[in-house]
Design a binder for these strands. Structure first.
Lengths: 144, 144
DNA sequence: CTGTCATATTTAGGTAGCCTAATAGTTAGT
DNA sequence: ACTAACTATTAGGCTACCTAAATATGACAG
């Protein structure tokens, strides 16, 4: 594609993502956990993670991650432990309650979004499914 | 697709959108206008719009839209006028400065995102281009 | 082994942006 | 004309983000 074409595509894609953000937010309306909390839990679910690693993956600064984690810890959803190999570092992991809460939150959101996807034609569903790997590659390329 | 398949697709799509939020945010790092401000300006750019209409399109409550608009008005980017046909309503429109600022902001963001898109293969670019109408339909279906 | 610089996290203080509830004015239906 | 519905704003509060500074540990050169 030419730069011009890519520029136009960028504009359309940006607009679509902007609206998709509100879609994602609307999925949270019913739930008990906020979008940010679910995002953080999803990151922690991958295993014991340092605070700085959570911040990096979430695209926020370290103090913001600390704040989120403290809130989640107070809610009993994650626990913090000292890294035995590096006393400066803190490892964050899910509690059993956190795992349950995350699973429930994901289930509700996926069901809602799945119902929305069901209103699309099979071709439209395929178009989205097919775009996801490209979107992920783009996300990775641009946000590190 | 089966409900189960759609459920899985919903999960993958949600995850991709979650990361795309940070991509969008990263496009704002350099600019003077926040993501929310650009979104609001983009809505207002479509013509004179009521506060309640802006709120609906932006996916926020009316007082939040009022707040945004007051900020943009203080920055000289939009102006508020009474609707002559309905004295309850306020019509919001861009000022010349607002139009310029929006154009500049969109240009910078589209250039940055366009550069990211340029790193994808043509097939990946096509996959995203092809998914956008479906994404827009889904957004419209789920957020009204 | 000690001083220095880098790394990891937390604390402190501030801002943007979202929310609900309450207020004031306008319109529309009976 | 009265009541109910609608439009916008104001008031008060919360979450989540930020930068700067403090605290503690690690790594390493001399």
């Amino acid at each position: 594609m030419t730069d011009e074409t890519l520029h136009v595509l960028a504009g359309r894609y940006r607009e679509s993502l902007r609206r998709a953000v509100y879609l994602i937010r609307s999925l949270d309306a019913e739930g008990e956990l906020s979008t940010g909390q679910v995002s953080t839990l999803n990151i922690v679910a991958e295993g014991s993670v340092r605070v700085s690693e959570i911040a990096r993956k979430a695209g926020v600064r370290v103090p913001s991650a600390t704040e989120q984690i403290i809130r989640l810890e107070n809610a009993g959803l994650v626990k913090r432990t000292q890294d035995v190999k590096d006393a400066r570092a803190v490892l964050v992991s899910l509690t059993a309650a956190g795992r349950d809460a995350l699973e429930a939150a994901n289930h509700v959101r996926n069901a809602l979004l799945g119902a929305g996807l069901a209103t699309l034609t099979p071709a439209e569903q395929d178009a989205i499914a097919h775009a996801i790997p490209a979107m992920n590659k783009l996300n990775a390329a641009m946000t590190g």
